[in-house]
Amino acid sequence: MSSLYWLASYPKSGNTWFRAFLQNLLEDGDKPVVIDELSTGSIASARGWLDETLGFDTADLTQDEIDALRPSVYDWQHDATELGYHKIHDAYTTADDGTPIVGVVGTKGALYIVRNPLDVAPSYANHCQCSLDQAIEYMGNTKHCMAQNKRRLTSQVRQQLLTWSEHVRSWLDAPQLNRLVIRYEDMLNHPLATFTAACQFLELPLDQARIKKAIAFSDFKVLSQQEKQHGFKERPPQTQQFFRQGKSGDWRDKLTGEQVARIIQDHGEMMRRLGYLDVNGQPLVTPRPWCELSVDVERRGDGVACVNQ
């Protein structure tokens, strides 16, 4: 029996926020969980998880060799008795023989969290400590990877992100993948409906009071306040703060018209599909409701959440 649920997203798209929600929901305590103790499951690219399962060091393998072995590691979970919820930033790539990077028999499904790329760009620039233009270049670069240094050992193995559009498409169109897609903006604007849909998909408790409490305990203000007071170990060392804005539409103050145009040029098709552009191709701060997106109607049965406003 498969046991892995992937919490999949391009970086800076709300994955950690969702994990904070999940941990709060599972613990169901009277105060928010400590953000340094988000322990729902290892990230897919954690070297420790791979080494432990394989029985030999991935540090002595090339990045391509590691990619070839990753599916077997996740498939090894096929008879685990407990469900696992694991973050993953890799694109849903496949090996030459068609095996997906996440394997086949170990995977139960994927919750894909997507966020307006106009808002991803400033956040990713901060994460990488690079310029906005550089972040926009990364998001448009099909060769872009995380943890790809070949000259030293990193605690995570290389993750191929592809371009932002390719990343989203790889997960949304992966054949035979049980999946639910939720948008960061719906998590913000329609939290109860969106998180409930996610809980239903992920076989989590559906008690509304409990979900409301977990939403409140993982509110951006709570996460940000905790980080200010006690720090957050997942923060990249050179950045000031991990939980920075937690808003949508921030791009209007952060990006130049040229930068907006470039992102729309690179990713317009996928942005339209996800409701981030209006009928005239202009960017929206509040994305169109899923139900209005004809292209996605067919995907509803396939697991795309239709969160009615």
């Binding site: 399962t53 029985g55 030999f56 072995l69 090894w76």
Partner: peptide, 19 residues
């Protein structure tokens, strides 16, 4: 079987590093 490429029995370990 302890892993996708790993087996053990008393005093014996079988390990495959593919390729």
């Amino acid at each position: 079987q302890l892993g996708p490429f790993l087996w053990a029995a008393p005093n014996t370990l079988w390990l495959q590093v593919p390729n």
